[in-house]
Simulated assay, not measured.
Amino acid sequence: MPDETTPPSLDEILAAMNLDSRGTLADRMGIEFVEASAQRVVATMPVKGNTQPYGLLHGGASCVLAETLGSVGSALHAGRDAMALGIEINATHHRSADAGVVTGVATPVHLGRTLATYEIVITDEHDRRICTARLSCLIKRP
């Protein structure tokens, strides 16, 4: 068993992030974190339950996944004593998905003291690009 000075493992951090998401929009959407650092955040989301009336992945669901990933990356960049608040998102929907799981990968475009911007690429199980989004977060420090 690790002592208090042993940093948590990546698996422990991801388990805590998934646990902390319980009862949130990310939880209701079925978003599961796979990897998380300020340089790269990865999560999956099921298509089922996140569709519009035609049975296709809802564009808003892609935006929720993108904002979740970019916000987590921004918060990790900002550190414990700061808040990362989404202030702008845009998304281009390239193709539809009607089943399976989509994966979002967020990587930084800019990591500053007061602003962090991430590009988020969402792909289907065949590695086809479903959506490209960009999120900017204001970093608010005490």
Score class of each variant (00 low, 15 high):
Pro2Asp: 10
Asp3Tyr: 04
Asp3Asn: 13
Thr6Ile: 14
Thr6Ser: 13
Leu10Met: 15
Leu10Tyr: 08
Ile13Ala: 12
Ile13Ser: 08
Met17Ser: 02
Asp20Glu: 12
Asp20Ser: 15
Ser21Cys: 10
Ser21Gln: 13
Gly23Val: 07
Gly23Asp: 04
Leu25Gly: 10
Ala26Pro: 00
Asp27Ile: 00
Arg28Asp: 09
Gly30Phe: 09
Glu32Lys: 14
Glu32His: 14
Phe33Glu: 01
Ala36Gln: 01
Ser37Thr: 08
Ser37Val: 10
Ala38Glu: 06
Arg40Ala: 00
Arg40Ser: 00
Ala43Met: 07
Thr44Lys: 06
Pro46Arg: 05
Pro46Asn: 07
Lys48Met: 12
Gly49Ala: 02
Pro53Tyr: 05
Pro53Ala: 04
Gly55Lys: 08
Leu57Ile: 08
Gly59Ala: 11
Gly59Asn: 01
Gly60Tyr: 07
Ala61Thr: 05
Leu65Pro: 00
Ala66Cys: 11
Gly73Glu: 01
Leu76Ser: 03
Met83Trp: 13
Met83Asp: 06
Leu85Thr: 09
Gly86Glu: 07
Glu88Thr: 10
Glu88Tyr: 15
Asn90Gly: 11
Arg95Lys: 14
Ser96Val: 11
Ala97Tyr: 01
Asp98Gly: 15
Val101Gln: 07
Leu115Lys: 13
Leu115Asn: 13
Val121Trp: 03
Thr123Lys: 10
Thr123Ala: 09
Glu125Val: 08
His126Asp: 09
His126Ser: 15
Asp127Thr: 04
Arg128Gln: 15
Cys131Trp: 00
Arg134Asp: 03
Leu135Gln: 05
Ser136Gly: 11
Leu138Tyr: 08
Leu138Asp: 04
Leu138Pro: 06
Ile139Ser: 05
Lys140Arg: 14
Arg141Met: 05
